[in-house]
Design a protein around this nucleic acid. Sequence first.
DNA 1: GGCGCAAGGCTAATCCAATTAGCCAACCCC
DNA 2: GGGGTTGGCTAATTGGATTAGCCTTGCGCC
Lengths: 178, 178
Amino acid sequence: MPRAGLSPAALVDVALEELDAGGGPLSISAIAARAGVKPPSIYKHVAGLAELEALVGARIYDDLGHELEAATAGLERADAARAFLHAYRAFAVRHPERYRALPVHPLGHPLLEAAGERVLGIAARAVDGLSGDDAIHALRALRAAAHGFATLEAAGGFGLATDVDASFDRLVDRLVAP
Amino acid sequence: MPRAGLSPAALVDVALEELDAGGGPLSISAIAARAGVKPPSIYKHVAGLAELEALVGARIYDDLGHELEAATAGLERADAARAFLHAYRAFAVRHPERYRALPVHPLGHPLLEAAGERVLGIAARAVDGLSGDDAIHALRALRAAAHGFATLEAAGGFGLATDVDASFDRLVDRLVAP
DNA sequence: GGCGCAAGGCTAATCCAATTAGCCAACCCC
DNA sequence: GGGGTTGGCTAATTGGATTAGCCTTGCGCC
């Protein structure tokens, strides 16, 4: 029996394929099958399903963070907030299954905290320039709107034909209005 | 062995208790235990876990719908939208476990469609007076903001001490601004 | 007042995913 | 080319969902 060349990172890759393939929630058996290995072998690389899910979440937060970083680099204030919102939504639209797999509350989980904080930090930078509580309020509004819209869209929740881009633009305009 | 007096509705009651008690996702065994019955007995009343979850979701949407209805009754335009948003958030804060158990996308599921449409209808009434696409855009913004804020708050996602009520009020103001 | 029968419990059994135990080959380093 | 570690595997355990089939309860009806 030849080695399969697995590793935690490789398993995360496989899990992302599995997610993208749309088969609902992750399972050890499905991932093992896709990796060409028997289920127990998975445990040589990760502690169990919970840890693998966390690693997958961390990877997705990382990817999202990089895209948000790139989109907001060099921008400030309203421009940064706009870019943040658009990049956030774009990610969810491009990878709906991955977005759905993201734990809502990464902070407090050892494997997710770092990546989650990075995303939050980028959002915080987008409301820079506001003072004290104003920044907090703006940050929360940004998160709520971005997450709410992304969730509904990733779930296929906008049934009507009316242009969703336009709806999003309206929402963004309201949020970043002076 | 005396009868336990179960019924689909009674099982939904039990499931809600179980949810409120915080034990994560619903399970047939947990519900059976709480109902004082063995797991197989559950199947005399509902088809399986999936159906029970759907019935629970429908009940929660119903309750939410009633509260939204009561909160927006007699109001129009911005007043209705404000009332809708505040009642929506209040529900999620009062019953975070129930809010988390709500399927994001009720439409298209036979058992959830009716209750889901009712909630959507109330939101639609809150943006009445806008014409055509404007109403759609406003409705989507309302849903996204309400759901996003409720989700984050129900997940414990707002860590800082800064007043969350104030943050929500700011967001509402932005959304209903003329 | 008792009979017939559906409804609603139960036990036993099945299936399937997660996980653990313990074996053994493959690979790496010397 | 031997020794230890790594990473597969098979077999076994556990626990939840679900199904099959039995048996009593309780109600309607004679």
